[in-house]
Simulated scan of single mutants.
Amino acid sequence: MRAGIKTVLALAASLAVAASGDAAGPAVGGYAGPITDAHAHLRLGADDGLLDNQPIGTVALREIDASAGVTRSALIVIARRGDMAATRRQNDAVIAAAKASGGHFYPVASVHPLDGAPALAELERLAKLGVREIKFHPNTQNFDVADPAVDTVVEKAGELGLVCLFDSYKPWDANEMGKFLLLSVKHPKSRLVLAHIGFSQFREAIAFAQIKKLNMGGNVWFDTSATVSAFAESPMAPELLWTMRQIGMDHFLFGSDWPVDTPAVAAAALRRLGLTPAEQRAVFHDNVQKLLGLPPEAG
């Protein structure tokens, strides 16, 4: 299963690099302030890298962030099913890594939604420790967004004030975006971030703009990782920008999906997409600050 997942991730990486090139390129227009990368993965050991060549720890990412103007970054981990002791150790490790960074990193912990009551107890523990966001990955964790267990953890996260970050691209589930739509409606007090805007299915995200007319769907945000890098210089770029504006730029967060893309490449792609300076500021910084209640950057 993990081999198949790595194949999909490698394909996504190749698409992103093909679209955006190896170098970041010049900034296009406007915003030159602080940047928060809302989607970067932490590798803790030999068996949990998103890619085989991903460095362990935070040193390399901190250096890459500095070169890209990233002043704050998420550190994401992904829990495996059936081993709550390992899940707790992983969560404690990402919390410790963020704490040791002096505020540069913030932890995005994880539980597996099919781990039942122990997963809910872990959410309670994480909330008490100050974690603000929880990662769920339907591909890597191998679950269906429509599973009732997902409803349970999303509802619990909402009760605890935790934001739920979901990967939103599952090539073998053509109905996934619709499932997220239903999930958001069923749990209006829970806040969801859909990473990658559905990737090649980003057109379907326009449904969230439509249901806002019915006073629903305002609890959903999207991060730009992978998708903007892949499509920023494609014939579909104007449609992607139009879709984002229809949903509302106040509901988009910048993300690199490191190590699939570097923050510099992802940031350059977002600038090339055609956002105004005010829109860039919102997506690069202000939206995630507001959503997660992050403190001001040091200095």
Rank of each mutant, 00 (worst) to 15 (best):
H187L: 04
H187V: 08
H187F: 06
K189P: 01
K189W: 03
K189H: 14
S190E: 01
R191E: 10
L194Y: 11
L194E: 03
A195W: 06
I197C: 15
F199I: 03
F199V: 01
S200Y: 07
Q201T: 14
F202D: 05
R203V: 09
R203E: 11
I206F: 11
A207L: 14
F208Y: 12
F208Q: 08
I211H: 06
K213E: 13
K213S: 11
L214N: 09
N215E: 13
N215L: 10
G218P: 02
G218M: 04
N219Q: 12
N219T: 05
W221R: 07
S225I: 00
S225V: 00
S229L: 07
A230N: 10
A232C: 10
S234E: 04
S234P: 11
P235L: 09
P235S: 09
M236P: 03
M236I: 06
M236K: 11
A237H: 01
A237D: 00
P238I: 02
L240A: 11
W242H: 13
T243P: 05
T243W: 03
M244C: 08
R245S: 08
Q246I: 02
I247N: 09
F254M: 08
S256M: 00
S256T: 00
S256H: 02
V260F: 06
D261C: 14
D261Q: 15
D261V: 07
P263L: 00
P263R: 02
A264W: 05
V265H: 07
A266M: 00
A266S: 13
A266I: 01
A269H: 10
L270H: 09
L270N: 05
L270Y: 07
L270C: 05
R271A: 11
R271D: 08
R272W: 00
G274F: 07
T276N: 02
T276W: 09
P277T: 05
A278G: 08
A278V: 08
A278M: 08
Q280M: 10
R281Y: 02
